[in-house]
């Protein structure tokens, strides 16, 4: 498959996942604020902004409100990682590769983009919940259609690879913000990852920091856990190039991901909380390194070649 198309698919996977995760995080946190009046609004807002790596001018940080944070993280087209920007970018990529994905996939992404103005309008008139729900439902439709209409070929793998890496990235951001917050509500955190019910069914008790962290990082069965996503990403890379040398791992992306996975998998649970800071940093860095390795290996340099007049003259 064309490198340009592979890169677009990788990013479609990342953008849609980013939009969905952001919608989940905002939805849960903002509604928690309404239900738990003791939570400090300003602190939660600062935490949300730091999760997404967004910094505002200092004078704006003084007067943060949930509404302002929603504007920035969900609606603001000038913020490159906002939901609106992510879904727009996903559609731009899909348009350029619409012959490589199924028609239904393209249509799902296009309808999502076309529906943004109406969803934004509805959110402005009623509540942001309507918008978050729209984003989650569209992401589910996109995921479902990719699952049921796309061949399990390279196109599919690049998309799932992007989605999985983004999932790890978002979850580590969320956990990093959680450990720096003094009175983190772990129920809210689990619900931000749609993990609360799965957690309850697994442990049958209310979450406390160690167990919640363990579940989100290490659970083998929950599809949004870091471990599960790392394994999925590794599988995608292995299927893209099944060769492995006699010793070592020649594919840098697989090497990085495998290293991260084993460092999680074989870590003593008791050490997990103590070493969490360092672990989260290494996960963040690892995701970036894996993404860069994939880009270097499969996407290469795809910028247009510029021909200067002199060169043309020499060639003639």
């Amino acid at each position: 498959m064309l490198s340009r198309i592979a890169e677009s698919l990788f990013w479609i996977g990342r953008y849609v996942e980013r939009a969905e995760d952001t919608a989940r995080i905002l939805d849960v946190n903002i509604h928690h604020l309404l239900e738990a009046p003791l939570t400090s609004e300003a602190e939660m807002c600062r935490s949300l902004l730091s999760v997404m790596g967004v910094t505002l001018p200092p004078e704006q940080m003084q007067t943060l409100s949930a509404r302002r944070v929603t504007d920035v993280l969900a609606f603001d087209p000038a913020n490159p990682s906002s939901i609106v920007s992510s879904l727009t970018a996903a559609r731009v990529n899909a348009r350029g590769v619409s012959e490589a994905i199924s028609s239904e996939m393209w249509e799902a992404l296009n309808v999502t983009y076309n529906g943004l103005p109406t969803a934004l309008d509805l959110a402005a008139r009623t509540a942001p919940y309507a918008f978050f729900r729209f984003v989650r439902e569209r992401a589910a439709i996109i995921a479902g259609l990719s699952e049921s209409t796309m061949s399990r070929d390279e196109a599919w793998r690049f998309m799932v690879l992007g989605r999985s890496l983004e999932r790890v990235d978002m979850l580590t951001r969320l956990l990093a913000a959680a450990v720096t917050t003094a009175d983190q509500d772990w129920v809210v955190l689990l619900r931000s990852c749609s993990a609360h019910e799965a957690f309850l069914r697994t442990y049958r008790r209310e979450p406390e920091p160690t167990l919640a962290t363990e579940f989100l990082l290490l659970d083998r069965l929950f599809p949004r856990s870091v471990f599960y996503s790392l394994v999925t990403a590794e599988e995608c890379l292995a299927e893209l190039d099944p060769r492995s040398g006699r010793a070592g791992m020649p594919d840098e992306g697989r090497r990085v991901l495998g290293h991260l996975r084993t460092s999680l998998e074989f870590r003593r649970i008791d050490d997990l909380v103590d070493e969490l800071d360092e672990l989260l940093v290494s996960l963040q860095k690892g995701c970036g390194a894996a993404s860069a390795a994939v880009a270097a290996r499969y996407f290469r340099q795809t910028s247009p070649i510029e021909w200067s007049v002199e060169v043309v003259g020499v060639e003639r």
Partner: peptide, 20 residues
């Protein structure tokens, strides 16, 4: 495949597309 000019490369009189 749908290609753009930047996806193609010519070498010794032959045309190739850059794939993954």
């Amino acid at each position: 495949e749908l290609v753009e000019g930047r996806d193609l490369v010519c070498r010794s009189g032959r045309v190739y597309m850059r794939t993954s």
